[in-house]
Design a protein around this nucleic acid. Structure first.
Length: 476
RNA sequence: GCUGGGGUAGCUCAGAUGGUUAGAGCGCCUGACUGUGGAUCAGGAGGUCGGCGGUUCGACUCCGCCCCCCAGUACCA
């Protein structure tokens, strides 16, 4: 008789969403704790905002149904149009606007998940964690410099060596657009294209400023159709921008010095550079780079971007800028603000790829095995004793009393030590402590089973009352 | 979104021009070893061949649509 086959649910994950296995989640939480420590040391305050917002909070009042579909937006309960946040900045602007008594400047940090309907790729997800730091209510450039300093310090604190924070300002670019006789409303297009310089290279950028180009797969990329004279002037800027550092500022001054916006921008960058010097920020970690543009439309002044020098293709892992007009949406008047955001998950993916992170797969350091069910009170007392001494420990919580399986569990779970106690040990008032981590190495060089089983140097039988001292010594 | 490539066991893949019961390696489970991980040996579980429809006596194989994955690229408010 044909039995109805049970329909199984596929254990599949939504595109661009992912699970973090324990080893990665442990590392992730350490990163968060580390960054938080730096930001609090600099006097930033934690703020948590809602994950879901009204669509118009995120998109402004003129959004369409189409733009709602570009993010995780939907019509929810009570017919409200809402969306999952795709960043924190707008929520921060809303919060500031809604709390007029907030003491300004407001120095706040926030971390949590954000959601974007992007095409997933390496280090790129649809749900990912960001860690933001912002100063709201300060127009002066010290705020920008502090943000950059926070960026550098937190990366240093994370133990990341090879990174560089590069910064520029939108004002120079705004002046450039005027200089090249490009209509102001096309400025955004120009910046979008120049922003690709890092990833696509000079040639592709120049083609895209003009007629367009064809990509590797043969797909056609539309250009923005500037005239060759305009492109020539933009190229003159790119030439000097690609010579980075102080030299490029002087050259920019010569080229664009007569344009007020650019002049102002050049002064801003010099000012920030000075502040960074006073704050003793490691000069090898920060660099003026006039090719930094940032895609987002709302930036009004300095912009920052951080890349890992060993993995430049991963893109930016910590970036932001000044956005003086964002609160205007809610308040009808501007409040200046500047800030930056770490892509925690992209950074984590990068560090794993670089093998710059030692991944721990267990929180337990000791596994207490269960050989004799009647001795359960003793085993539990041992576990408790270890925990009371601050040594993370677990009792074998599976269903077998087969020691082979228990040891195998400890090995595979990555627990470095196992405590073994059966009748032999109890009669002598002792316990056996096996070094699973050392045994793993030993196994590499031993092919004979007898020899392997007798490898006594990876375990020792000691008096019960010495267990704690012994383990503390071994664990360092 | 667009262009190109691809979906066969948990993973990596094989499966001539359609033909009975779809295979291998690794991994997993069990035992040899009931007090010790690895190695070895012996057994075992695991698949609606991405989905739906069509052609055919017969489809993993051919056709159509859809879904998903990979690469490039766009968009990134």
């Amino acid at each position: 008789m044909a039995r109805e086959k049970k329909k199984k649910v596929k254990p599949q994950l939504l595109k661009g969403f992912r699970d973090y296995p324990p080893s990665e989640q442990i590392a992730r939480e350490q990163m968060i704790a580390c960054v938080r420590e730096v930001f609090e040391l600099m006097g930033f305050l934690p703020l948590q905002t809602a994950s879901l917002e009204y669509a118009e909070v995120l998109l402004g009042s003129h959004y369409t149904r189409d733009s709602l579909a570009e993010l995780f937006g939907f019509v929810g309960p009570d017919d409200a149009e809402m969306a999952l946040r795709y960043e924190f900045t707008l929520s921060l602007a809303r919060y500031v606007a809604a709390n007029p008594n907030l003491p300004l400047p407001f120095r706040r940090y926030q971390y949590g998940n954000v959601w974007r309907v992007d095409k997933p790729g390496p280090g790129r997800f649809r749900e990912f964690m960001q860690f933001d730091i912002d100063i709201v209510g300060a127009e002066n450039l010290l705020a920008d410099a502090e943000i950059i300093a926070a960026m550098v310090t937190s990366f240093e604190h994370l133990g990341i060596k090879n990174f560089r924070v590069r910064y520029s300002t939108r004002k120079i670019l705004n002046g450039l657009v005027k200089f090249a006789n490009i209509e102001p409303d096309r400025g955004q297009d120009v910046m979008r294209v120049i922003d690709k310089l890092d990833k696509q290279g000079r040639e592709a950028v120049v083609l895209e400023l003009g007629p367009g180009r064809v990509d590797q797969s043969g797909d056609e990329i539309k250009g923005i159709g500037l005239e060759s004279e305009q492109i020539r002037q933009l190229e003159a800027f790119l030439d000097l921008a690609q010579t980075k550092g102080e030299g490029s500022l002087e050259m920019a001054d010569r080229l664009l010095g007569k344009i007020p916006a650019s002049k102002e921008g050049i002064g801003e960058l010099r000012q920030i550079q000075d502040y960074l010097g006073y704050m003793q920020v490691d000069p090898s970690k920060v660099e003026i780079d006039l090719t930094i543009v940032r895609g987002l439309g709302y930036y009004t002044g300095p912009v920052f971007e951080t890349t890992l020098t060993d993995l430049p293709d991963f893109g930016s892992v910590f970036s932001g800028g000044r956005y003086d007009n964002l609160v205007d949406r809610f308040l009808g008047r501007s409040i200046p603000a500047t800030g930056s955001s770490i892509g925690i998950d992209r950074l984590l993916a990068a560090l794993i790829e670089l093998k710059a992170l030692k991944l721990r797969q267990s929180t337990s350091l000791v596994l207490v095995t269960v050989m004799d069910k009647d001795r359960l009170p003793d085993y539990l007392a041992m576990v408790q004793m270890l925990r009371n001494e601050g040594i993370p420990a677990e009792i074998y919580s599976g269903d077998t009393r087969n020691l082979t399986k228990q040891i195998k569990y400890g090995d595979r779970a990555g627990i470095p030590f196992a405590v073994i106690a059966g009748s032999d040990e109890f009669e002598a008032g002792k316990v056996t402590i096996k070094n699973l981590a050392a045994g793993r190495d030993k196994a590499m060089e031993t092919t004979d089973r007898e020899e392997w089983l007798k490898a006594e140097d990876i375990q020792e039988t000691i008096a019960v009352d010495q267990m704690i001292a012994y383990l503390k010594d071994k664990l360092g």
